[in-house]
Amino acid sequence: MSYTFQFGVLAQYQDEILNGIWLTIKLSVLSILLGSAAGVVLASIRSVKGGAARFLVDAYVEIIRNTPFLVQLFIVYFGLPGVGLRVGADTAALIGMTINLAAYSTEIIRAGIEAVHKSQIEAGEALGFTRFQIYRHVIIVPAIAKVYPALCSQFVLMMLASSICSAISTHELAASAAFVESQTYRSFEVYIVVTLIYLALALALRACLALVGMWLFGRRVARRTMTSLPEVQA
């Protein structure tokens, strides 16, 4: 097979692609902020034994983690208008991504909370910490530090999964690519370029998350975030 690559035709669609990149970045950053914040709250609720709130959080996490992201997006975009809640495609994408990411981060952070040994909490009590101080200094911050690399992997996966939002007419990077492809019929070239852009975005996101990790939890956590290597216990 001989195929003549023509990347030149893509140059005139530069603005289209840049707009797509910008929306992908916006959706990813916002959903990461909202989703992880919700994850911290929900994981805290989930780590409390018993109660209706815990049951609801459990149900939410299980439903989201066991259904396809595309179906969740369709429900937000096509289903909610049926009950009088109409949101645009970009907002629907953000809602869908946040709901999805919140469920996964809840589960990841919960694992971190469960890894905090009971004796440490008892040590906090012995030192006269208030309940809130124990929760903050002994439970949640060390828990997140432990699972931070896993959390970051989930964030990167979410950024890549944002490409699915093109199915509900959100004009992010994958939709831009599909548009350029349908205009130029140069699918090979378009998707090579877009693959490289996604790769660059994923690496950049990982680097940013490592910097945030260094600032929040120190160098060791940051290094694990960048390389995704399991923590070596000293």
Partner: peptide, 18 residues
Amino acid sequence: IVVFEDDSTSAQALIAGQ
């Protein structure tokens, strides 16, 4: 112009008021 993957999803967008 709002673009979907096929005719039936496009029609669904109209029915849902999107």
